[in-house]
Design a protein around this nucleic acid. Structure first.
Lengths: 108, 108
DNA sequence: AGTAAATATAAGCATTTGCTTATTTACTTT
DNA sequence: AAAGTAAATAAGCAAATGCTTATATTTACT
C-alpha cells in the first residue's frame, strides 16, 4: 500500500466519532437512523462521517427501501482491520433517549 | 486501548510527511538533520512532526551531543505497529542535494 | 568568553476539518 | 398526486492543522 492511500485511510480513521461508528458496525449492519442516535451530533454530520469512511474504502452501504444500511467491507486493508480489531463492540446506544431505536431493530 | 488514545495515535499517523519520516526510521535511528533533507519542508516543520509522533508514543529521542537521534519505540501499539509494518523502508534521501548526508552518517 | 551548529519554540497565516442549519432527493404510504 | 420519512448535499463558520520566518536554547569548539 502506497503512502497516499495509507494516509487517506488513516485520516478517515483518525476521528473519535468515526471510531465509535465503526464500533457500532463491528460484526453487523446498522442503518443511518440508529447511528445518528449513538452520537450527539446532527444527522448531516453523521452522513458526512459515513461518506468519509466509505470514500476510504472502509465501509459500504446497502439500500433497503428508504433506509440505508452500512457495514464494514469484507476485505479491509491490514491497517484498517487492525483498528477495527482493537475496538470494542458497541451494541448499546449512549443517548438513552426516546428516539433511540438501536436495540429494537430487526438486524440487531 | 480506548477510543481517545487510539484517536491520538491515528491522528499522529495520518499525514504523508510523518509516514515518510517513519519509513526512514524503520529499523534504524536517524538524526533530525538527515530527516530534514528527506522532506521538502523546513527544519522547524520537521521538528513539529517529530514532536507529534513523540507525543503519541510512536517515536523516542536520544541525545548525542548537539544532535538528536530519533527512533521508533520498542513496544508499539498494535495499530501503530501494523502501520509501520506496511511501510517500505526508506534508506535513500529524495533531495539529491549537496546538503544531504543521509548515506554518509555512521549509523546508516 | 565568543562564535557556530543542531534543534526547539513562537508567532502568524492559509487550508482543512467538523460541525451547524437549510434544502434537496428518493422512497413509501395514504 | 400529496404528504411524510430517511438520507444526502449545500453553504457557512469556528477550530485545528501544517506550513513559514524569526527567535531561543543547548552543546561544541576556539
Amino acid at each position: 500500500m502506497n503512502i497516499s492511500s495509507m494516509e487517506k485511510q488513516l485520516k478517515a480513521l483518525a476521528d473519535a466519532n468515526r471510531l465509535i461508528l465503526l464500533s457500532c458496525l463491528k460484526n453487523k449492519e446498522v442503518c443511518v437512523c440508529d447511528l445518528v442516535d449513538v452520537l450527539n451530533i446532527s444527522q448531516p454530520a453523521v452522513s458526512q462521517h459515513l461518506k468519509k469512511l466509505k470514500d476510504a474504502g472502509i465501509i459500504k452501504e446497502r439500500k433497503v427501501g428508504t433506509w440505508k444500511h452500512y457495514s464494514i467491507v469484507e476485505n479491509l486493508s491490514p491497517v484498517a482491520q487492525q483498528v477495527v480489531d482493537e475496538l470494542d463492540v458497541l451494541t448499546k446506544c449512549d443517548c438513552g433517549g426516546e428516539s433511540c431505536l438501536i436495540e429494537q431493530h430487526p438486524f440487531l
